[in-house]
Write a protein that binds this DNA or RNA. Structure first.
Lengths: 353, 353
DNA sequence: CAGCCGAACGTTAGCGCTAACGTTCTGTCG
DNA sequence: CGACAGAACGTTAGCGCTAACGTTCGGCTG
């Protein structure tokens, strides 16, 4: 590790034969330098391998062109969001630094925002599913944008339209002819889960279908809960012909239970998930699901933050982005199966008792 | 966004009625302050919500207690590694900031290391699978540790023992009685892929089993390549009874192909993967695989970096951590199936032609 | 009791940079 | 041709902090 000294702006200026301030102006592309001199300075800086010291820049109150992101890395879409955000940020000549929230730690997150505040020009917080540190961010006088996956915040924010997605999922099943449609819920402490449940009930009502509480089973977004919920549903006398699971993971749990019971998806039961996780298009059956607009969320959040940094004091904006129904193999029209379905049911009933 | 001003050390000192330097000493837990005064200052700093300005600290050449990590977020185990590293760092009272490498971008990565250098006390680089920017890091005079997933570096580094893992996988199959064992390779530009292939050949030789080039199919770690490779293997006159896939993703691809051909795993063909990706214990069949020592890698890399930061000029250390065979459902002893296997083969042969 | 030593402080300089002023010099217009 | 504007620079101060020195003072030694 050789202790070579990185050149400072003063050294660049000296070599270029100008004052420190002229060099600063040239490098930051500010007026007050003649074109020839500017080019000269830029060339010399480049040759010397000059890199601006962001710590010093930030200390003087200037922009560092860094945005900070606070996120829980283990949460499903986080890496996709981060990749998208990084690309958008870089396109705007910003760099992005990520602070990875510990999984379960109650240390004051105040200091984390503080730390980023000292480095970055603004912060995007991808709100974890469960968090109690929103208030502590309120004092940070640095632009903050939140991406909400489950919790509402008072900051300018970006969210996926879970309600609309849930409606689309259910309408899809209804259009396929299904009438007995079950719902495996998510963790209702999260707005996303509540919105999806609300969509289930609302669309049922709109379609004038009866609401059967037995068809609405509680889950928690995990595979196991989907598995167990489906077992409960299969044990019903009049079991559903379709299931809307609050997310893909629990949908696959439900599918596993259905198969274990000797039934097929979508042959016997259609299943819709939510999220469009990457393997949803690879596993068998490829899952019909609702795609989260991750790229748009990434783009919108970064652009919103950059606008705030630029001083456009946008009123506390709440951006809600549309989700999209992706039809794959796990759903199929009901009608053609009706008779076979009935036959199987009778058969099983007689065998069972 | 109220423009409340965060207290500086000078303000804390003023309120405490001491000089700025005494306050600094107290807060940084350095000698030269009487116990009573120290406690006083700490209390007041806490009350005022003082947070040290890392930019200013770094500017004076002091430690910031931040470690930087450069990683490609979309690469398989990155989030697990990062979570582990974050936990270890926090335990040592360090914070961690992650720079997410763009997927494919040829911008000089020099400036990224530079940026982190100005903020952090040391940097861990999780080497992406394909990269040409190792040299540009060489000039950074800041401790650097690499985690190698595919490329060798000249820095102190931490790696998983791919060769040993490959050996374990193959020995497992041989112990189960398999003799015709195929290999679906990874991308050979990566040392990890080469090491696994080398293990395949070496163990075959050690076991005095014949090496059949037809059983060694090229892949690229992706699901599709596993699928296609397995199709080739199934088309062989004398098809293998076991497959060692260079990673779990391609292993599941192979399993999909085997099933599509009407065969079962492990009934007809045993499959071993490599990596132990999270879903390997959830999908059907649960995959026998080689677990990467991610937690140990995280721990080792952070500890190594902290040692370097502490000035223990450890000689360019290369830490290789052992992998672990995880036996699940996708492998089974050959012998009991021998006759049935033969029967099936004859049957298929006669039907086929 | 002079001399000295070390603990407990305070003061100064400077890290690398930028904002906010000076300063110089050229052109330009009444 | 003086006054004045404005472009092209240079100088100064200071961001918040710490290293490296001063300074003070109680206590100990011979």
């Amino acid at each position: 590790m050789m202790k070579r000294h990185y050149p400072t702006l003063a050294e660049v200026a000296k070599v270029a034969g100008v004052s420190l301030m002229t060099a600063s102006r040239a490098i930051n592309n500010r007026p007050g330098v003649s074109p020839e001199k500017r080019e000269d300075i830029l060339r010399i800086a480049d040759e010397m391998g000059y890199v601006a010291n962001r710590a010093a820049q930030k200390l003087t109150g200037a922009r560092t062109r860094i945005i900070g992101v606070v996120a829980e890395l283990h949460t499903p879409f986080t890496s996709d969001l981060l990749l998208g955000m990084g690309a958008v940020a870089r396109a705007a000549d910003y760099e992005m630094l990520v602070y990875s929230l510990p999984v379960c730690d109650r240390r004051p997150p105040h200091s984390i925002i503080e730390m980023l505040r000292q480095i970055a020009d603004g912060v995007i917080v991808i709100l974890p599913y469960e968090s109690d540190y929103l208030e502590s961010m309120a004092t940070a006088h640095i632009p903050v944008v939140t991406i909400e996956q489950g919790i509402e915040s008072a900051f300018p924010s970006v969210t996926a339209d879970n309600y609309q997605g849930g409606c689309a999922a259910l309408r899809h099943l209804i259009e396929l002819g299904h009438r007995r449609i079950a719902f495996i819920s998510g963790n209702d402490r999260l707005t996303s889960a509540r919105d999806r449940r609300r969509a289930y009930r609302d669309v049922l009502a709109q379609a004038r279908l009866p609401y059967d509480p037995a068809l609405e089973v509680d889950g928690d977004f995990l595979r196991k809960s989907g598995f167990e919920a489906a077992q409960k549903l299969l044990a019903l006398d009049d079991r559903p012909t379709a299931i809307f699971a609050a997310n893909d993971t629990s949908a696959y749990g439900a599918i596993a239970a259905i198969r274990e019971a000797g039934l097929s998806v979508p042959g016997d039961i259609s299943v819709v998930g939510f999220d469009d996780i990457p393997i949803a298009s690879q596993l068998h059956p490829q899952l019909t699901t609702i795609r989260q607009p991750l790229q748009q969320m990434a783009r919108a959040s970064v652009n919103l933050l950059l606008a705030l940094i630029a001083g456009l004091d946008a009123p506390s904006e709440q951006i809600v982005l549309p989700t999209q129904l992706i039809v794959r193999e796990s759903t199929t029209p009901l009608k053609v199966k009706r008779k076979k379905e009935e036959a199987v049911k009778v058969e099983r009933a007689s065998v069972g008792r």
